[in-house]
């Protein structure tokens, strides 16, 4: 092998091979490099900084190395000891000290708790969905609003999440808004969440939690403060009786098929908390099955009839014995709970 072959052409080929795939890409649904909050913005900035610095160092070191490999005779640009101490000790020492100080300061800012009067939400992860309870700011800290697999928060206001787990370790992660925080049995972790712009942000469990770890997503819906307050006010009201035969029948099916053993609907059923998602306002949620399906009456029916084939291992049974009309009525009833 007379002339050494460089790894560079190979990298170029690899990158070129990548470009058609990049072109195929659609806008990612969740992304750490599309920050929509101060914390995610800080982290994304750190990423670009690290990428730039890392690239510079990579190019610099590889240049030194290839230059050394290609030279035909010994070179002595500086003394060997100066070279080793300078490159191996002084340079990384200085760069890393600066990096450490900067990022620890940013980290402290990100983990700082919000003001005492901030909205507090308890999120409890379990195999494989999220139970969400808003603490009543005026009350004793008990939940005044229960939902599942979605968080609605006011735009621009930091919110304190208390993260729990009911079974194994999970991790709360909404990349556009924040880094992840684990949810560990026996511990309560805290996370300050904020969204700078209105929108729906997807997140999903980031710690392997068993069979359906892949199917454990949630949505954070950020709304302008006025909209959010209206939403809260609406949630405080007991939902109205369903109108019309179909919805009435759906409610009957809901009561008679066994749904009420696990699912709460305020004013209709009241099973022990934490068994299954609260369905009081299920009709207004972005998704069903913890991010599995978009929330349409058709998908609701599909989920009820065949949850075990859509998400094997989940606690939701497949009600495939329901006749078509009952199923449609039940789905319509649930979709009407907005």
């Amino acid at each position: 092998m007379k002339t050494p072959t460089l790894p560079l052409p190979c990298l170029v080929v690899a990158l070129a091979a990548l470009s058609p795939f990049a072109a195929m890409a659609v806008e990612p649904l969740q992304s750490a490099v599309d920050p929509r909050s101060p914390a995610a913005g800080d982290i994304a900035f750190i990423w670009w900084l690290l990428l730039a610095g890392g690239t510079l160092i990579f190019v610099g070191v590889m240049t030194l190395l290839l230059f050394a490999m290609l030279s035909r005779r010994p070179r002595r640009p500086v003394g060997a000891r100066l070279f080793i101490v300078g490159g191996g000790l002084v340079f990384p020492g200085v760069v890393l000290s600066a990096l450490l100080v900067y990022t620890v300061i940013v980290g402290a800012r990100i983990t700082a708790p919000p003001a005492d009067d901030a909205l507090q939400i308890d999120v409890t992860a379990q195999m494989w969905w999220w139970d969400v309870r808003y603490r009543d700011p005026d009350g004793d800290g008990s939940a005044f609003l229960v939902t599942a697999n979605e968080l609605r928060i006011p735009v621009g206001k930091p919110v304190l999440l208390r993260l729990h787990s009911a079974d194994v370790i999970h991790s709360f992660w909404v990349p556009n808004l924040s880094g992840k925080v684990d949810m560990i049995p026996g511990r309560v972790n805290r996370l300050t969440l904020q969204a700078d712009a209105a929108g729906t942000y997807r997140g999903q469990c980031a710690e392997f939690c068993g069979l359906q770890h892949s199917r454990m997503a949630l949505h954070v819906v950020a709304e302008p403060v006025a909209d959010w307050e209206r939403w809260v006010a609406q949630r405080r009201e007991v939902p109205a009786e369903p109108a019309g035969d179909v919805l009435q029948r759906g409610r009957r099916v809901f009561l008679e098929t066994g749904c009420v053993a696990c699912h709460a609907v305020r004013g209709v059923s009241n099973p022990p908390p934490g068994l299954a998602p609260d369905l009081t306002h299920v009709g207004s949620r972005p998704s069903i099955g913890a991010g599995l399906l978009t929330n349409t009456p058709g998908n609701l029916a599909a989920w009820i009839a065949s949850a075990q084939s859509l998400k094997p291992g989940s606690k939701m049974p497949s009600f495939h014995n329901l006749d078509g009309e009952s199923l449609t009525a039940l789905a319509a009833y649930l979709a009407s709970l907005e």
């Binding site: 050494p4 030194l64 050394a68 490999m69 030279s71 070179r75 002595r76 490159g87 191996g88």
Partner: peptide, 30 residues
């Protein structure tokens, strides 16, 4: 971050060895 330093020292020892030597580019070097 501190553990980078002893690793970087090893790396620069390797570069210095090449730099002060007369490198032959045989298959293992690839």
């Amino acid at each position: 971050m501190l553990v980078v330093i002893p690793n970087a020292i090893q790396f620069f020892c390797w570069i210095a060895t090449l730099w002060l030597g007369k490198p032959l580019f045989k298959l293992p070097m690839l």
